[in-house]
Amino acid sequence: MSAIDTLVGLLAGRIDAASLAPRDWDGVISVARAEAMLATLAHHLREADLPPPVAALFADQRAAAQVAKDQALWEAEMARRALAPEGIEFVLLKGTAYAAGGLPCSAGRQIGDLDILVLAHDIRRAENELLEAGWEWVKSDPYDDFYYREHMHELPPLIHKARDRMIDVHHTILPKTHRVTPDALALVGDAVTTASGFAILNREDMACHCAAHMLADGDLQGGLRNLWDFHFLTRDFAAADTGFWGRLDARADLHGLRGAVHRAARLARDLYGAELPSGWDRQDARDVWYRRRLLARDDWGRPTNFMLQQAFYIRSHWMRMPPTMLAKHLWTKWRKR
């Protein structure tokens, strides 16, 4: 069995950690690192029977993830101190939101940049306040800057000059030019507040955003981690609220994300063993390509299946922008190489 299959099997609970030969861990650790899931795996196997060197490495990963989580929440606090005095409300997204909400999927989850969502009419003010509070532009070229402002769902990334941490300020969750236009006003309007006082998306919107981020806005790089988020989020939400799947359906319809959300649910079932209600538990012949893309990694952690990766890369651009714009964009990018 390949290392990536073993990783997924361990996460799904299909494979018992004690059944692995010591050297099987080489590949599992490498692919988990490549998928930014080593600390997630370390949390998942906290109680498992592991070879001592693996147990020690996993303990390191859990401790490091705790520090990283505290640092990410501190960044959120810094953003609040910059924006709250001006009355600019923002909603935390992705990893930082899961951590702020104390959600189980945040255990060991790698958090990269701070992602926040503000109302579109607040975005210029948010930008100014952040610049005054010490964030600055990551050096980029004028075309990229123009492209972000004109067509994207977020400002060009800002980095804090003292803390060296990036912030992505979004005004919606998919590019403006994308074929699908989620209801950004509803996302912000229906956000909920955590015990620590941060706004995060409500349960259904959080699942919608997770699916959109994975399946509608990228080439599935890091997809296994996003799928794990989706699996854990929906599993826990459904356990706490029997009407969750029905409400998720309705909310996905509102945002135009029904296809992405259903596909994410099926992939979570196929890879991580998620249990789905009847209306969701279907088959789709195209899912096989997604599964292959998600598992395209060899035992040394290297990406494999180059053609399939390219296909998903092209697909991500195809969804993001109309054909003439895509042609223009690729032409500009190519000339800059």
Binding site: P22, D24, I29, S30, R33, A34, P53, W300, G301
Partner: peptide
Amino acid sequence: ARPADATVRLFAARPWRRWLRPSVHIGGDF
């Protein structure tokens, strides 16, 4: 028998570069 903490990969960027003016790229977990 001890599992590895860290993986290093030394690889050719293109298959033919294993023989033709071979150049070693440094890869790994990081």
